[in-house]
Design a binder for these strands. Structure first.
Length: 262
DNA sequence: CATAATGTTTAAGA
DNA sequence: GTCTTAAACATTAT
């Protein structure tokens, strides 16, 4: 699930543990947690997280003057701040226990994400080549970066080194709303359409954030609530098409989203 | 049982 | 250097 709106929900969850003393850290699966349990305890025990930052699909929890925890969620991830009496979720991979006996559970079913540490969040972001967050990017930068590319629009939107936060599902939604075919090459998209995509990127994420990333609560006319095999376009009621773009399953409406001619 | 699934990285070829 | 495709990672759900 984790794309920008889901990670934004995790950010809010992490905010709850801010300023509470860290008592200990338990690593459940060393393949998911790249830093050792010892190392984590050495760096964070006795401290507290004073800043939580989301950048695209990444989350950074920073302790007072020192190290930060990096959370990346992969395809299946979750973050929950639970009370002492609440039972541990099934796929908790790492657990931060606080003085108030609450725990922050980093959950991952498929373990495609990871937890690690960094002393320098800005440097980490540079190393990972993480672009500006989709909600932070200004219009001019967006337009000029699209103009500098020639690949399919969906591929560009989901490239985290170009814009960060957009994943497979939300790129489908943004392009569906903008009525642009996901396979359209960026060098064939007019500036007017680029502006429309920019506006919808904000609109869609703003709406999804208001609904706390609950896809079923998105307004009528959205693609994501019906993004399933055999369903129809909420607009024209025609059948949705499914295809693969950069190896990712893509849903679109062949009649509402203009087909690029080959 | 085979297949696909929200993400990223890496390799290889055009 | 740019772009595309495929495969790999680990595990669950259908």
């Amino acid at each position: 699930m984790p794309e920008l709106p889901e990670v934004e929900v995790y950010r809010k969850e992490a905010e709850k543990c801010k300023n509470s003393g860290i008592e200990s850290i338990i690593v459940k699966d060393v393949r998911f947690v790249k830093s050792s349990e010892n190392e984590l305890n050495k760096n964070f025990k006795g401290k507290h997280f004073e800043q939580v930052l989301r950048r695209g699909k990444y989350l950074f929890l920073s302790a007072e003057k020192g190290a930060s925890v990096v959370l990346h969620f992969g395809m299946t991830g979750d973050l929950r701040y639970l009370k002492e009496n609440e039972k541990e979720p099934k796929y908790t991979q790492c657990r931060f226990i606080f003085k108030n006996k609450h725990s922050l559970h980093v959950i991952s079913k498929r373990k495609l994400g990871y937890i690690e540490m960094t002393d320098d969040v800005e440097g980490y972001i540079r190393e990972k080549d993480l672009a500006t967050d989709a909600l932070e990017m200004n219009r001019n930068d967006f337009i000029s970066v699209l103009k500098s590319k020639k690949s399919m629009i969906k591929t560009v939107l989901t490239d985290q080194s170009i814009i960060s936060g957009i994943g497979n599902e939300y790129s489908d939604e943004i392009l569906y709303q903008a009525k642009v075919h996901p396979r359209e090459r960026t060098d064939r998209i007019s500036e007017k359409e680029m502006n429309k995509i920019y506006d919808l990127m904000h609109e869609v994420f703003k709406t999804a954030n208001e609904k706390n990333a609950d896809v079923s609560k998105l307004p009528d006319g959205y693609l994501l609530p019906v993004r399933k095999k055999g369903n129809n376009c909420p607009g024209c009621r025609g059948k949705l098409e499914i295809t693969k773009i950069s190896g990712r399953t893509t849903y679109y409406c062949p009649s509402c989203q203009k087909t690029p001619d080959k």
